[in-house]
Design a protein around this nucleic acid. Structure first.
Lengths: 148, 148
DNA sequence: CTTTTTTGTGCAACGTCGTTGCGAATAGGG
DNA sequence: CCCTATTCGCAACGACGTTGCACAAAAAAG
């Protein structure tokens, strides 16, 4: 009895949709970032997928590729490391649609994507043309609140 | 005829107000950042004050000190370098009051402080407590608009 | 299935930004 | 002017991220 072709999983679909090849590294990186509700830095992703899975160079190249193809977006931060989070499903290489607020917790240091909170609009002075808006809050998250 | 004591300039005042000593490096760094309407990175400040004025280590220590004492604030960015801008006059070591929008121009790469544009409020999910808000726009600034 | 081509991976080496430790210099109060 | 706490500069270091090139793997072609 020949094995039935199993339906493509979510990660496979995502890679296919953005025209990227299936490779173990890409699957691992995507799996590590996609599940999280918060943004991960390069080193964090490295730890997440296991140090032996890939080397730093390939990881950073993968992240850059994912960003360009609309699978991940950079999350601004007031630190000197870059952080990435999974894009919403309708993002593409041409345009991003991640207009949600980010929240950085000073205690657990996670930067959460509050996907249910939209970025409010602002009126810009004449001459400024914005194509991307980021709203970043810092404070204490749900899980890190002091008891009381 | 003895020279009259000249009135303390703005930079002297700022250092005194925050309880910091007057040193050439601090005056130079403060002068470089205070005039600008946009945020500067460490290397940019270094270039601004002249490479021979100080070495990197002292510069970064100065920036950290200024940040802690409320003279400068970090401006979030989606790059891996830290950028600083001058605080408004009422900022102190205890609290910052720079609730203005920042605008990053992709052409000239400057991150402007739009001090006249306030950061709009958002409603947070229960449990999140924010003490600092950042609003960052990216696009094209007044000076870099394509003609037409 | 095999071959070809295209694309991704890993190694080595490197550049930049930012940091620690410690002795020398300096600001500011007596 | 002198003393003391603070700051500066040097040396060395560490982390993050990047480039160039040879090899390997994935997709496409036969």
């Amino acid at each position: 009895m020949p094995p039935l072709p199993s339906p493509p999983d979510r990660i496979t679909q995502t890679l296919v949709r953005h025209g990227l090849r299936q490779t173990p590294v890409r699957r691992a990186v995507l799996a590590a970032v996609a599940g999280k509700g918060y943004a991960l830095s390069g080193p964090e992703i490295e730890r997440e997928i296991g140090p032996g899975t890939t080397d730093r160079i390939t990881l950073y190249r993968t992240l850059k590729s994912f960003e360009q193809h609309g699978l991940l977006h950079r999350v601004p931060d007031d630190t000197d490391v870059l952080r990435y989070a999974a894009c919403s499903i309708e993002c593409s290489a041409e345009a991003h649609f991640d207009n949600h607020v980010h929240f950085r917790c000073g205690t657990c240091t996670h930067t959460y994507c509050l996907s249910q909170v939209a970025v409010p609009a602002v009126a810009l002075p004449g001459g400024f043309r914005a194509d991307r808006r980021h709203y970043l809050l810092s404070g204490t998250c749900q899980l890190c609140q002091p008891a009381g």
